[in-house]
Design a protein around this nucleic acid. Structure first.
Lengths: 345, 345
DNA sequence: TTTCAACACGAAAACGTTTGCGCGACCCTT
DNA sequence: AAGGGTCGCGCAAACGTTTTCGTGTTGAAA
């Protein structure tokens, strides 16, 4: 149980100064070969490694990225983390992850926690509650303190920063258009409540596709799921009442519930009902039938977000207080495409 | 773009010493009320928060837990993280996550990285490659340096430390026994290669259940999946050759593949073939039919692991170099139970 | 022998905290 | 008026680094 060795201890042991040890380990020409070799050997023997915390304090940077997301038991978010981690690793960064649990307060607490020197920059996706309250003071504050922020997926126009998103509206439009092309006319939408930005955008895309094809936009064909438990019932009711021929769901969970509801009523998918979902995850790949989805490449999204953040950090470092902060923020759009599987004809 | 304010800046601004500022903010009785109020007001105005890195350096502890897992795009591991994060948060800890990607080298690099002062302790699950090589020097080293380690799920007897696992053998035994109770005799096992500890244990449980019921243990009914792509074929072959009546899969992915294979051959689940799987995840809940599984409560596992680690950290802090390190390590076993769904009769 | 460069190393500041201790100023007691 | 006590504050060390700027010793050139 020997604690990690420090420069000071090596110095004392070898009867030289701390600076001599430090310089020797960096192979500085200031130090004689003899001394260097002796110190290096000693350090290697005791497996000396510089203390990260001390380095962070000295360099005023931690080489750590803070990630704040609503939840982690969620295929999409897990893939994004995976993407972030890849790029972070490639560039010598670590990631520290905080979960907001869809709570505004936790999001704020976590951000303030990390903002006090623990990290060099944020990558985040807004919690539902934050989007509902539209209170972004914690983010503004972080940015004002010079902490770069990259938002992904659930973003807001109220904050100026780098963002990486998918074109939710267009993707939804394309998915619905595909249904229409196949002859569907009565297309139901199963969505979340409106304050979640992506839900709103996907609804917009759905509506536009209908209108562009001269299909009346019928509010009765839209289910806004507030609470998971009644989702199935609502869909069954719609199937019963309206004789719809397709369902467009904003996530795969809603889609699989729709399929189960259809089965329960003796309808076959895709023969009697086509189903398309947003977010290509595990469920879509393994449900029966497999579900046609809009791909939403989390890995790519995460990689892009991390690349943007690290790019900014490095630029910052290069400028080094030149104060020429070119406040030019970018919004990257990740391509999506429709993955055709067995839930559509 | 004002950088975060420091004690030094406040001191200079108010023309007092740094210590006076620090003590005032801690409401020390050493300082007069007047001065304290003035300083506190000023600090609040500038939203002063102590720098975490400086605190970490001073206190020799970071209030951060390092997590090393093979991958994150995996329901089970995601739930474990979620559990860890809950308890960590409740106790004022942050979590920093590294992915080994099932690679030994990455596991080593990540551990060494974090061990240099970045964290107070580890929670980890071994990568496949590490288990294959059975090389645990990096873990021993961390422990020798006084860094507490808690291992979960994929553990090894070669390392002495706190562990939290499920009783893989017993859980497998129970699952197979349940099949036997229902009249199954020809039960196939779809497993991973043996060096993954849990795969081995689950196989043992399967074997014991058979033998205890006087059912011959037939190696030909076992499929060791090396490579995902041929998994389906192997199962189909078995279904064709052997007329098996049940499949016990060590994870839900193998189970769903078995079900698909069965369907493809015109067999119905559960009428013609029962399927039970380990690891209760998303797939089991949403596949058709839903799959009977052995629950493996990741949240609980994560919570337990975090609790054990934090407990040890606090004990360490209390002892404070009393050197009375009671090296008594515990292994906690998380309860499992069979969740009966539609893939079994 | 004096002078100066080169060499090898150490002292100290800095990053941002916390905290034990010392010290001056004041007031009260005798 | 001298002694003692209290109050209010600052100094400095410590955590573990890196790096700039000395500084003492040596050897060679003048």
């Amino acid at each position: 149980m020997k604690r990690k060795i420090t420069l000071k201890q090596i110095a004392k042991e070898l009867d030289v100064s701390i600076s001599t040890v430090s310089k020797s380990l960096k192979d500085s020409p200031e130090i004689s070969e003899d001394t260097k070799l002796k110190i290096q050997a000693f350090a290697r023997m005791y497996n000396y490694k510089p203390n990260n915390i001390a380095l962070s304090l000295k360099n005023r940077k931690t080489k750590t990225i803070g990630i704040i997301i609503p939840e982690i038991v969620h295929h999409f978010f897990a893939t994004v983390i995976s993407g972030i981690e890849q790029v972070a690793n490639e560039n010598g960064y670590n990631v520290i992850i905080c979960l907001s649990d869809e709570s505004f307060d936790k999001e704020v607490i976590n951000m303030e926690m990390l903002a006090n020197g623990s990290i060099d920059g944020f990558i985040m996706s807004l919690s539902k509650e934050t989007q509902l309250k539209a209170d972004y003071h914690h983010i503004t504050e972080a940015i004002n303190q010079g902490m770069p922020v990259v938002m992904f997926d659930r973003v807001t126009n109220d904050i100026l920063c780098d963002k990486v998103i998918i074109d939710d509206k267009k993707a939804a439009y394309d998915a619905v258009q595909d249904l229409i092309d196949k002859g569907m006319k009565k297309i139901a939408l199963v969505s979340t409540v409106d304050y979640v930005s992506v839900g709103k955008l996907r609804t917009d895309g759905y509506e536009k596709a209908l209108l562009d094809n001269d299909i009346p936009f019928n509010k009765n064909l839209i289910i806004k799921v507030e609470d998971m438990d009644h989702c199935g019932e609502a869909i069954e009711k719609l199937l019963l009442d309206r004789a719809i021929d397709a369902v467009f769901a904003v996530n795969e969970l809603f889609a699989v519930i729709a399929i189960k509801a259809a089965h329960k009523m003796g309808l076959n998918v895709p023969e009697d009902l086509s189903v398309v979902a947003f977010t290509d995850g595990i469920i879509s790949q393994f449900s029966t039938p497999t579900i046609t989805t809009v791909s939403q490449d989390g890995i790519k999204m995460g990689r892009k977000a991390a690349a943007m953040l690290i790019d900014r950090l490095q630029k910052e470092e290069a400028e080094e207080e030149h104060e020429e902060h070119e406040e030019h923020y970018r919004t990257e759009v990740i391509e999506t495409h429709l993955i055709k599987r067995d839930s559509t004809k």
